[in-house]
Simulated scan of single mutants.
Amino acid sequence: MSSIPDLSRATWVKSSYSGGNEGQCVEFAPGISATAGVVPVRDSKNPAGPALIFSAAAWGSFTAAVRAGGLPAA
């Protein structure tokens, strides 16, 4: 990846797999992937904090594994 996308205008969506008020809240910015080919992910409890940037392919593999129950519970 040659450049970091501008996330200042990103629309963040809370994951449906985030657990209520249990402190396990993840948000992603799906609109960025359409234009930059990457998926930014952040902790919804710290929206001003850093975001991790994944390739769209890597994020797709991860979410497919979550949906299939292929990841062990922490």
Rank of each mutant, 00 (worst) to 15 (best):
A57F: 10
P72S: 14
A36N: 06
I4H: 11
C25Q: 07
G49A: 15
P40R: 02
V66I: 14
S33Q: 14
P30A: 08
F28V: 09
D6M: 05
V39C: 04
V38N: 05
P47N: 12
P40S: 09
Q24C: 11
I32D: 00
G23Q: 09
V26C: 06
G60S: 15
G20T: 13
V39T: 10
G60M: 07
G69M: 10
G70E: 15
G23N: 09
G19Y: 07
P72A: 14
D6K: 01
V66E: 05
P50V: 13
V41W: 00
A58Q: 13
S2Q: 12
C25G: 04
A74H: 14
V66Y: 05
S18M: 05
G20I: 02
W59G: 01
A58W: 07
V38Y: 03
G19H: 10
V39R: 03
A73I: 13
A56V: 13
P5S: 07
V38L: 07
A74P: 15
I53A: 04
R67F: 06
C25T: 06
G37I: 07
W12H: 01
G23C: 09
K14P: 04
C25E: 03
S8Y: 07
S55H: 11
T35L: 11
D6S: 05
L52P: 04
I53S: 02
S61Y: 01
S2W: 05
S33L: 02
T35H: 12
T11H: 11
S18R: 02
W12F: 07
W12N: 04
Y17N: 08
V26D: 02
G37N: 08
K45P: 03
K14W: 02
M1E: 08
F54S: 00
A68H: 10
G31E: 11
N46H: 15
K45E: 14
W59K: 00
S16F: 02
F62N: 01
A57T: 14
W12R: 04
A10F: 03
S15Q: 00
D43Q: 11
N46D: 15
A68Y: 08
S15G: 05
A64L: 12
I32H: 01
V66F: 04
A65P: 05
D6F: 04
S16D: 10
V66Q: 01
A57N: 13
